[in-house]
Amino acid sequence: MAALVSLLTVITLSLVITRIATEALTLTGLSRESAKFQARSAFTGAGFTTSESEQVVSHPVRRRILMLLMMLGNAGIVTVVSSLVLTFISAAGPADWLSRFLLLLAGIALLLVLAKNRWIDRLISRLVNWALKRWTDIDLRDYAGLLRLHGKYGVMELKVEPEDWLANKLLSEAGLRSEGALVLGIQRADKTYVGAPRGSTHIRPHDILILYGRLPALAELDSRRAGIAGERAHREAVAMQQKLIEEQNKQEEQDKQDSNPQVLER
């Protein structure tokens, strides 16, 4: 009987763990249904077979949540299987085996009823949300994902090393906007944060810049070093951005003409 109690306890803990993970994933910006599916997939080891898997593995907080779920899931499955085997191996006879089987079904049915009860569902959601916000630093929304609007554009953190091209420059001197890179914020080495920095903001060594732009261009900027080569790379990046703007303007003009055929007729 102790094995049966242990089995039901493990199943209860599994439901609680996946529920906490669901709420945590929801706090990072996933829809509740997606969060529930991803949490259960990770815990059971079923894998990710949906287009949402990329949104999960590319987000560091979600990735940590699912890694923990996978680890707990492996331990939980082993415990469930061993408890299930012990529950029926230790039965004295067919009658005892049947009674334990019925108790197991009744216990699982009760847990499912409680898990699907709307009042209990709302209560658990509030408690889990309060606890996660109180004792964790999970981001409320995946802003990097929201800003990854199309194609190769996205958000990237860039740590400024002393030998980098950006080090010891004013933001206006760097001219990053002319390269198509927007500085959303700067995390200083002393943990202070500069939001929406202006042109007079000084870029210091060991700062972390939060940048938005074309990811290949941001990656090149991250590897750019001070000196003549760095200045040349800056001019090339500006020229590339100007070319992209010209192509975009041509495309917009073409779209206007396609949407207004009367202009062509005149």
Rank of each mutant, 00 (worst) to 15 (best):
E163T: 15
D222S: 12
S14M: 06
A174Q: 07
I245E: 12
T18A: 11
L111H: 04
D222K: 12
L111E: 07
T201W: 00
G230Y: 02
F88K: 06
V61I: 12
A167H: 06
R141W: 06
I89H: 05
I17H: 03
L132W: 01
S58N: 08
T201P: 01
I65T: 01
A189W: 08
V238M: 09
L170W: 04
L140Y: 14
Y212R: 09
E163G: 14
Q187M: 11
E231I: 04
A144F: 03
M156R: 15
S14E: 08
P60F: 02
T28N: 06
A131E: 11
L66F: 04
F101Q: 06
L68S: 11
R63F: 12
M240Y: 13
S259W: 09
L8H: 10
K36Q: 08
V85K: 12
K36L: 03
L30A: 02
L132V: 03
M1S: 13
A189C: 07
L158Y: 00
F88W: 09
I11F: 15
I124Y: 05
F43M: 02
S223R: 12
D139L: 12
G73M: 00
L8S: 06
L209P: 10
V128R: 05
R204Y: 13
T50F: 05
Y153I: 14
K243I: 09
D121Y: 12
K152V: 07
P261R: 01
I89M: 10
E23I: 08
S223C: 07
